[in-house]
């Protein structure tokens, strides 16, 4: 019995981290070690989002035109996803302007854009991590002299293990092919 106790404890501990114990697929974006800080100031590794199907994009909150369209398109796309899978779909927008997008900026953006924080996360990275993260997602951005950014506008679908399952460049309306991919990912979930 004495010898068993530590094993029991270990088993219990491991059971609580079942998903963490399964190795990540090599093509998972969660291979990248980066900390995300959300609109409430909570910091956690990107890989902590493992286990959920999610839509991801990158924006910056002072962006007046295209970024709100990206956010709106994420909202529309979620609405187009079939029930009951829809409830399991998470939405994540990461800033590529960490210099200006503080936690406060993210929080007020969430309020202004009336984002439902039950499934939305706005996040920032450390300054040095924004470009690798964008590269990982295959997104491009370039800062202009006036502080604005040019950037590619895409929605990316991550499966539960952080593999890029689909992507769309359709912004401003729902892309039915992309929605079908989300439905499929959620059904497999």
């Amino acid at each position: 019995m004495k010898r068993l106790a530590p094993w029991l404890l270990l088993t219990l501990l491991l059971a609580g981290q079942a998903s963490a114990a399964t190795p990540l697929p090599p093509d998972s974006v969660y291979q990248f070690n980066v900390t995300l800080t959300d609109q409430d100031g909570h910091a956690q590794p990107l890989a902590a989002r493992r286990g959920q199907v999610q839509l991801v994009s990158m924006i910056y909150t002072s962006c007046a035109m295209v970024c709100p369209m990206i956010v709106d398109t994420m909202k529309l796309t979620r609405k187009a996803v079939a029930e009951p899978g829809r409830d399991k779909l998470a939405l994540l927008a990461v800033s590529f302007d960490p210099a200006r997008d503080s936690v406060d900026a993210l929080r007020s953006y969430a309020a202004t854009r009336k984002l439902d924080m039950r499934y939305w996360t706005l996040a920032r990275t450390e300054l040095k991590d924004a470009r690798p993260l964008a590269a990982l997602f295959g997104l491009q951005y370039r800062q202009l002299p006036d502080g604005d950014f040019n950037h590619s506008s895409e929605l990316i679908l991550l499966d539960t293990d952080g593999r890029i399952a689909a992507r769309t460049t359709v912004i401003g309306r729902v892309d039915p092919v992309f929605v079908a991919a989300i439905d499929k990912a959620l059904a497999e979930h």
Binding site: C63, A64, M65, V66, D148, N150, S152, S153
Partner: peptide
């Protein structure tokens, strides 16, 4: 339409 923020993928 002040904001740029762009595109062209």
């Amino acid at each position: 339409m002040a904001g740029r923020g762009s595109v062209t993928q």
